[in-house]
Design a protein around this nucleic acid. Structure first.
Lengths: 148, 148
DNA sequence: GTAAATTAAATTGTGTGCAATTTAATTGCT
DNA sequence: AGCAATTAAATTGCACACAATTTAATTTAC
């Protein structure tokens, strides 16, 4: 007989991650509202600030999101004139996402966000890195299993 | 001048948590689809299995969700005949959520889920507890700041 | 060269999640 | 007692997130 404490909310390992993820998105809002973007949109821009031009598929691979989520999100970013969506001439199934000048400029306003976010968490740099490393370990473990 | 690496996706602490949370919800689906419930619905049931009867507000406090999320969710659980939603006689603003016999019975089917989930993560028990403790630390840190 | 199979993105449908607001009931103050 | 303030839940509006499916284009196989 499995002991009951396995089914108590406080003993669930996954719930705090779920709750924390939502908390993080919430905390980001204070900063991102000023830029008029959401957290997932911010993630997209992070990738584009680093890579300038990406297909929907490439964005999806990096952000672990599918086109069902990305397509409307990217359309909204396009409407805000932060990105351009262009059908590739080489392969018309492919849509390339690139930064507009305004989108590129937003990077400057966003540069202090990661640091300020960290300041809101109340944990040490070590704890933060531990958290990240374990999270990434799980993600990588499951990435491999899915492809096997 | 803030170095650019602060704005690289790989160096974001928050993104792996965000991605992990979604991954966790995904992994849970394998088990919860059989019970015909979603992960947030599962969380609600976890609370009810432990506490039998809760107001919407109490559920919200425990799950860090507001009634905008909970009300439709609970309505769907009610439609599945897993819970009853009853207006309190003592205070008609209050809606009490209680388990139906079917809802209570589901606990038996769910008893192995936490353990099996753990098996899918590819981390040690220690790593899991570390992850949970840091996550809870952040959540508590921000719970206090919000009320201050 | 042509048809079948595969692929990239888009669409459809459903269930969250949260801010803002509304509705109805209760509490607090005078 | 009556009204203002507060509260619990519900609603409205919007942005995700993901499964399933569709559309259009490309690749593969014959």
């Amino acid at each position: 007989m499995v002991p009951d404490h396995y089914l108590k909310l406080d003993n669930q390992f996954c719930f705090p991650i779920y709750a924390l993820s939502r908390e993080i998105t919430q905390l980001y809002r204070a900063f991102l509202d000023e830029l008029d973007i959401t957290y997932p949109q911010y993630l997209v821009l992070l990738v584009l600030w680093q890579h300038e031009r990406q297909t929907v598929n490439q964005l999806g691979e990096k952000l672990l999101l599918d086109s069902g989520t990305l397509t409307p999100l990217l359309k909204r970013l396009e409407q805000k004139h932060l990105v351009n969506r262009t059908r590739s001439r080489a392969d018309e199934r492919v849509v390339e996402i690139s930064l507009t000048p305004a989108g590129a400029k937003l990077k400057e306003k966003a540069r202090c966000i990661p640091k300020e976010m960290f300041g809101l968490l109340g944990i040490s740099l070590e704890e933060m890195e531990t958290l990240r490393n374990i999270a990434q370990k799980i993600l990588q473990h499951n990435a491999r299993e899915q492809k096997a």
